[in-house]
Amino acid sequence: MTIDHKRLLAEIEEEVRRKRESGDLPPHLERELDIVFARYAPVRALDGDFDQVLTRAEQATFIDVLAPTASSRPVIPHVKRVLRKSVVWIFRYVAQQASGFNEAIARAVRLLGTRVDALEEATGTRSIAPLVAGDGTATMPDAEHWLPVLVDALRDVQGRVLHVECGSGELVRALVNKGVDAYGVHAEGAPADAELDIRIDGVMEHLGKVPAGALAGIVLSGCVDRFPKAALLRLADQAVARLAPGGVLAVVGTDPVAWERDRSPVEVDLGAGRPLHAATWAHLLVERGLHAPAVHDGPRRRPADVPDGLGEWGARIDTLLFPPASFGVVASRPR
């Protein structure tokens, strides 16, 4: 017995919409009851949802001048009603002005929101966002080759090691098996392994939650092939800042030539981001105060249908035609 929960929720939403349109639920009654609800759910509960916060602000512009008069004692409600009746005209006068001001502010913020939406559309920021967040698939090129290299580079660190965009956690598992205190983060949609500490989170979001100098090791992969240039520079800043003295930072990326070769022209031309060269990563890390990194070439990927056996010259031609498809850059922070 299963349920289409999304469909059920949509049906309820449609029912609510129909009720409002038909006048079955009078607006004044709904507003009065929604204010009762709002008293038990502070607006900060909606943080992160701009439209909902604004809707709540718009609802809150209404000031109810009729204070409740109920009381458990017999005479008090009557006294309260008399008092309310005698002063309500003053409150109404003040409330009208306050409500007018609040409405104007809420309207202005709504217009500002619309303009920000338009700006995001025009600059493409919104369409880039999902690419920056990660699509949950690309993790590490040539993983089989890099796993032992990374385990070797990180096995002796003292403290926690983070693998950014860890996929299903192969590197985290390999490190944990070697006694390293490793955990990983990955974008939404990654398979969760209950035995490992793997968080579903955005790269930048997660690094923002880690104190400066807290990590003994960081491995960056996946996102380094996909982020736009500005985001990659920020990623380098954030990662270096979170590294403890003596900590190790490793970047495993796709070589830009191989990256272009393996993609369609449309994707290459219109993609939001692209990988940097190994030398560029080395430059960025040294620029941010790390020791001169070791740069490792990944394996060469010679297509199976290219004939072999052309001797020394053939090997040289292979080197030119089929450069390593990935690289690893490993640097440490001075103690």
Binding site: H5, L8, E15, L25, V36
Partner: peptide, 23 residues
């Protein structure tokens, strides 16, 4: 998140045994 949703949800829960069972 307000009375309108409350009313529609209670209608469903109280009036539809199959939905209740599936939930």
């Amino acid at each position: 998140e307000g009375f309108a949703e409350f009313e529609a949800a209670v209608d469903r829960l109280a009036g539809d045994a199959e939905v209740r069972a599936r939930l």
